[in-house]
Design a protein around this nucleic acid. Structure first.
Lengths: 128, 128
DNA sequence: TAAAAAACCGATCCGCAATCGGTTTTTAGT
DNA sequence: ACTAAAAACCGATTGCGGATCGGTTTTTTA
């Protein structure tokens, strides 16, 4: 689950603009950061092999898209980063709140609303 | 912030048992996983240089302890793992709730309680 | 079907964790 | 204070994975 620097940049770019082929991605990065088209190709390839991108022949070339929503991905990141340390969920919870020390009221409100949603979804699922 | 496999094991061990010197740590791992005392030494050293452990001469040898509480550490892990992806806090929040899809009622309760605490602390801080 | 574009392969470089041998420094016992 | 043992420190090696790109094969298209 360890992502390199360019891999992160490419993923973020694809989330911001949607599907793109290697050429488009390269066009975007060549001025700001440099690197050959080949480098972009192999990075896209690596991300594809790692299942973070899906790809589909779109006319001439492969068009790459993020394999999951950003929030799901970040969730997976958190899981991967913490799994070797948090045996139960409690650690994760308190860690999150520790982390959220710099969350303002508005974000705390938002978090509560999200929890409510989560309960909602869970209940619907149970009723099935 | 990338930790190797042995580094993670050592950190977890120190959280579970408190301060220990290289010998103690080595004694703990030599049967289950192998590796020389030197390997443990340099791992402790690396963790110390990375500021994850503090150390103090305790009689004959350095005694190493975790530099922070586990929950603070996990919070830092989450921050590090996600910072290249979440521009604002919203992503992080929804990611967390996505992640917590497999949290049961009890844990959701606990999370809400923790948020309450967080608000409490914040208010106290503001009043100063 | 030939030129151009894209995909694929392989080599190299770099950084970092793991590993451990060997040397220096520190500690402790006499 | 001297020396032996222990601990700390240094440096070399190995292995892995990302970044980089040249060169070759495959695919597309005109």
């Amino acid at each position: 689950m360890n992502l390199g620097e360019l891999e992160k940049l490419v993923l973020n770019y694809l989330w911001s603009t949607g599907a793109a082929d290697a050429k488009r991605v390269h066009d975007h990065f060549k001025t700001t950061r440099g690197g050959s088209l080949n480098t972009i190709q192999s990075t896209l390839d690596r991300l594809h092999k790692k299942k973070f991108l899906t790809r589909e022949k779109q006319g001439h070339a492969f068009s790459y898209s993020p394999a999951m929503e950003k929030k799901a991905f970040i969730g997976a990141l958190i899981k991967a980063a913490t799994q070797d340390f948090s045996t139960d969920h409690d650690h994760l919870l308190s860690a999150f709140v520790t982390l959220s020390a710099d969350l303002d009221e508005a974000h705390l409100d938002r978090l509560e609303a999200l929890i409510k949603d989560s309960r909602q979804k869970k209940t619907q699922g149970d009723e099935k």
